[in-house]
Design a protein around this nucleic acid. Sequence first.
DNA 1: CTGAAAGCGCTTACAG
DNA 2: CTGAAAGCGCTTACAG
Lengths: 333, 333
Amino acid sequence: MRSDKITIADVAEALQVSKTTVSRAISGKGRIGEETRQKVLAYIEANDYKPNVIAKGLAQKKTYNIALVIPGDCNLVDMPFFQNSMQGICEEASANDYDVMLVPVTSSNSGNLERMIANDKVDGVILSRSLVKDTNIALLKEENLPFVMMGTSRDAKILQVDNDHRAGCCALVSRMLHSGIGRIGLIGGSKNYVVNRTRMQGYEDAFHAACSKLDMALIMEDCDSADKIASAAAKLVQAGVGAIICMDDFVCSVTLQVLAEKKIAVPQQIQIASFYDSTLLRNAKPAVTSLVFDDRALGALTCKVLLRYIQGEEVEPKSLLGYELVIRESTLF
Amino acid sequence: MRSDKITIADVAEALQVSKTTVSRAISGKGRIGEETRQKVLAYIEANDYKPNVIAKGLAQKKTYNIALVIPGDCNLVDMPFFQNSMQGICEEASANDYDVMLVPVTSSNSGNLERMIANDKVDGVILSRSLVKDTNIALLKEENLPFVMMGTSRDAKILQVDNDHRAGCCALVSRMLHSGIGRIGLIGGSKNYVVNRTRMQGYEDAFHAACSKLDMALIMEDCDSADKIASAAAKLVQAGVGAIICMDDFVCSVTLQVLAEKKIAVPQQIQIASFYDSTLLRNAKPAVTSLVFDDRALGALTCKVLLRYIQGEEVEPKSLLGYELVIRESTLF
DNA sequence: CTGAAAGCGCTTACAG
DNA sequence: CTGAAAGCGCTTACAG
């Protein structure tokens, strides 16, 4: 920390007022004469005084920091999501004079989060990838530290903000069903992630809404590696599906590769759609029909909810953001 | 900030000693009787007392935070690098009881960094993507805040830690030259990034070392979009090169696509190598010969250098980490 | 070896 | 409307 900066005491002395007065002029709290306040503000402006946030925080028992817990082991598909939502979070945070501390956590090691909590360096926490069983949640509850899940949790008592994967996936599948494609296959990702289960629900919703029966033989869940995805895709081709829905863009890119190798034309022979559009598929050929979500907005809203909650304001227990269905070359509708 | 935690005053009172004594027992600074110190330590352990880092920092004029400046607009290729180096940084930081604040900065907006500095929330800064002209550097110099560049800068006065791209690229190209391939093409990325210029130097080094003459017609620099890369690749094919070196994995993936479309066999007709191996090419077919760097180690070392510097220790002005040349199917040597 | 006191840079009852 | 004082939870000369 540099020490060449002026303090509230310097300002007070220069203006021949008390530190209390200066503090009040800045914070706007407490009664203060309009003239005095203008004088203080003018001096501050002219001399480029910035209050020390750390000291302010100590006095108020706040830190003006939030922690962002990110997986310490995420893979390529997730990265655009984290990158974008992080931007949104940081933007919203800094608009409220908050800063964001990075806390990488792996399933085997939540020590970083524990340290952060023990050190009292944050006022709240954003959890970012929702696992079906998440040990961090227990930790935070125990410590009684405000937190919000960027994603979905089955525990209704947890504040959560998410993209509306369920409605989006339902809309995409409905569209497919109505376009008259007979057999629709699904290749799903790891069931450890809540988001994959949520997407699955959307898929089922669409079938129920259309009064169609799910064909379990065409649903390949838990494909968490390129190999599993490839063999699932091969099976669906074998089964003679007219379309394949991929649960995320990694699934989709592997599936496209398999089809290309088998010389199956997309969309003429098999149509393809993806439940999530990341930059990973940006250059795919053909361009893939998919759902797109505004991850930056998701981050911003998540942060906003957390900050409101910290400030004791009323917040929605669960917020959902919309989706966009973008039709591209990989489908015929 | 929760307020249910015990403070140094509580410990002092319980033990009937002064706060000074407790502080000394914890910090190890100042003379203190071994017996007393054990007593304090035991009590602390038993009652799970954790010093408040914020208060400690205020008293010492430190924050125990560092800022990590990351591009607010990075693309997919960069992500694995940031992801991995970030892990290394966070690890090293927390091993020293430091935390990492995230500061996204775009070329048009360095407000986040300014705010962070003005708010005195960090003891130092890590800059992470070195642009040829970097406005953040001026900002940091002016503020006299310790910082280190994770990457290379031409300004020798700046502390820097980088992968040895130059030596690595030289080794790869030398290997190619010695394997007897006649014409070797190069497709380079944006010259705005220092790293791309450094890689170019390694390329040139290899030619000089082999006493071969550079054929400028085969060097395609500044290909910063898929279109430019594709047209560069097409030109090199036209020029009848025996090999193409791609400056990064995005360049490489586009190049592979172009060759596949033109039905040019890799490596039989044209060999391919990449100067950087990210997960982006993990599933490429054929697997691509490339340089691999340990980005996590890079992050950790960068952080270590910064922390040492902050603590007033002597540090190397420039550290370089090694590389590994991984030969895969895309080349014939 | 130990402690009382001042201080880090703020905020906020309390009093006037 | 304004200020003196105590306090946030630590550290660190200084004195003993």
